[in-house]
Nucleic acid binder design. Sequence first.
RNA 1: GGACAGGUACCCAAGUGGCCAAAGGGGUCUGACUGUAAAUCAGAUGGUAUACACCUUCGGGGGUUCAAAUCCCUCCCUGUCCA
Length: 403
Amino acid sequence: MDVDKQVAIFMQGAEYGDDALKAAMAKDLRERLIEAEKEGRPLRIYCGYDPTKADLHLGHTVTMRKLRQFQDFGHEVTFLIGNFTSLVGDPTDKDKLRPILTAEQIAENGRTYAEQAFRVLDREKTKVRYNADWLSKLTFEDLIHLSSNFTLQQFISRDNFRKRWDNNDPVYLHETFYAIMQGYDAYHMRADVQVGGTDQLFNIVTAARKLMTSKGVKPNVGITMGILPGTDGEIRMSKTLGNHIPINSGAKDMFGKVMSIPDKAMPVYAKLCTRWTPQDVEEFEKAVLGGTIHPRDAKMKLAFEITNAFYTDEEAENAKKAFVTQFQKGAVPDDIPEYKLKTGETFIDVMKNSGLVASGGEARRLVKQNAVKLGDELISDPNQEFPKAGILKVGKRRYLKVK
RNA sequence: GGACAGGUACCCAAGUGGCCAAAGGGGUCUGACUGUAAAUCAGAUGGUAUACACCUUCGGGGGUUCAAAUCCCUCCCUGUCCA
């Protein structure tokens, strides 16, 4: 297999914030590929996942997509569940300490996590491992040796510690163990390549490489993936921020949510979430920026590819069709909730009782805003008795079949 | 244990006796426009109510007052610093 082609594919979407580092990593990767081929073995790749939450969204799948690419070239992929590291929580992630989960919760989350991940990864070719299997066996003495590879300055100069330090926000001692544990994982598994987000740059490149070197093994190559922005197109995708695209909520939802990203976010999504080759992505980006493809059509193409990467051809096709019918043609979608009209109910009653709106006030407001239609007829008096069965439309997206 | 700073609506944040259902921003929703749920512009955004109005809400509880997010007491919680 052509080594340079592999390098191009594997480095696609990787970001280091530093061109020299990127070039160095690409070079390392190339050498490692050649070396492994000589030894007649596949590369060992892994990425660690935090099992404290169980709902995956597109952002989590960026690294999985990367792992999948390695799999497709016959390399050995380990899906590592960080059931031990989750005791600490990644300091990169949040300023709050994580709630400590029970072993059972973590095991359960780990399972559902892996299950969702197999929408991207090849189940047959994926090893699932838990880092508590080795980390929990380390002694205090081991920890002293491991941590003697690092200085406090190295940690404090990290951006996320630095900021908190400057703000007088707490920086806990045990947070520094995170990087050490992650480095030990890489050492224990003798990883050739470790994949992660750019927020993992320090953990992967500095900590893991240094620790592995000190242990006398070849340091892993780090592939740190760019961060996927959420549906707002600006801030990293996260469930807490509500800008996420869950992978388990159905093809239609996924298609629609991708369609709602701002135009300018299309290239990033193409780079991080599709199965396209580097050339495909480049062409797509050029076409979008150059205006040779209509932005709407470009986004449709993108939405279809992303949906199709998680769902079957048929499901993706249906999602696309449903989107076109509902939004482009403004037609009524085929699967809408139904409501049985009771005698004497007003528009407010129907909207409220069917759960279409949360309160009477909201119903009144929507009517006032010309958002409520029965069939083609605009409703102006919310207290009017509901006249007849039909399709009630509220705004662009809410429908109710009243019988 | 001590000192200090805080706890306000979905989130951030202003407000230090009445004009406060509570500024501003974000988010969300709606409308116009369009190329889509993009961008832009406009409006809405506690509940009940046709309306007058009423009810609930500024960490919990108690009090002062005609009137409290605002003053007093007490409790709980969060953070920083010192020990």
